[in-house]
Amino acid sequence: MPALANNRHEIFAQELAKGKSQVEAYETAGFKNGQKNAHRLGTDEGILRRVAEIQSERAEMDRKATEKATEALAIDKQWVMARLVENVDRAMQAEAVLDNEGKPTGEYKYQGSVANKALELLGKELGMFIERTENVHVVHDITDEPLSPDQWADQHTTPH
């Protein structure tokens, strides 16, 4: 889809694609302050298609740039995982702190949060963790009748 014929609409779509609110995009496009009109224009099918197209083009450009940088720097999964293991070793005091010339300073420093994050990333890459979500729905019956002793016991002994 080419740029929108109405220049203000194109600017509005570009600004929405950048993540601005409808009102901010509306005003940046040169329209007067108007929340209702910003919302109306922001729900227009042509505008929405253009925003999706712009975001898709940007995502593709980002993907290509990342691919190019990855090739140029010889970064691959093995390289990243090796660096994560290196971070764990350093953070867990398994390696000495080095000075600017690469010589050990004799200092060892524990950084638990660094080690944990590196281990988490490695574990996720290796499929060691399962994302768990719990949907707990509690249903309460509202009634004028008092609970029997058994009903009261059931409500206070079973987890909700």
Rank of each mutant, 00 (worst) to 15 (best):
L121N: 08
N37K: 10
E53P: 00
L122G: 06
D89Y: 07
E145L: 03
P159M: 03
V114A: 04
K68D: 12
G123L: 06
V80M: 08
Y108L: 08
H137R: 14
E95F: 01
D44G: 04
P146C: 02
A74H: 14
A3E: 15
V114H: 03
E71C: 05
M61Q: 13
W152Y: 06
D99Q: 03
A52E: 14
V88N: 01
K64M: 14
D154S: 01
I54Y: 06
Q78L: 08
I142V: 12
T66H: 11
L4F: 09
T105I: 02
A118Y: 03
I11V: 15
D89R: 09
V80L: 12
E120L: 13
E71N: 10
Q55R: 14
L121Q: 12
V88M: 08
A72F: 05
Q111W: 01
E120I: 06
L4I: 13
L147Q: 07
I75Y: 04
L73F: 10
G42L: 07
L41S: 09
L98V: 05
Y110A: 04
G19E: 12
H160T: 00
V23W: 13
D154L: 03
N116P: 00
G30W: 09
R50P: 00
V23I: 15
D141R: 07
E145F: 00
Q14A: 13
L147Y: 00
F129S: 06
P149T: 03
V51R: 07
A59Y: 07
G19F: 14
H137C: 01
T28N: 13
P146I: 09
D141M: 08
R49T: 10
T157S: 04
E86G: 11
P149E: 06
M92H: 04
L41W: 09
A5H: 10
K109V: 11
M81T: 07
Y108E: 11
Q155P: 00
L48F: 02
R132A: 07
L16E: 13
E60F: 01
K36A: 15
L41Y: 13
S56L: 08
A38I: 05
N87E: 08
I130E: 11
A91E: 01
H39P: 01
L48R: 15
G42D: 09
E57P: 02
D99I: 03
Q93S: 04
R63H: 03
A115Y: 00
N87M: 09
S56T: 12
E24Q: 15
R8Q: 15
D62R: 09
G112V: 06
G42S: 08
L16R: 14
E15F: 12
E101D: 12
G42H: 06
E71K: 11
A94Q: 13
A65W: 04
R49H: 05
V23T: 15
T43A: 10
E134V: 08
P2W: 12
D150G: 00
L119E: 05
F31C: 11
E10A: 10
M81D: 11
G112K: 05
E120M: 11
N87V: 07
K18D: 15
E95T: 13
Q22M: 15
P104C: 06
D141K: 08
Q155A: 02
A153E: 02
S148K: 07
N87C: 08
G34Y: 07
N116T: 11
R63D: 02
T157L: 01
D44H: 10
Q93V: 03
A52R: 10
V85P: 00
V139S: 03
W152I: 01
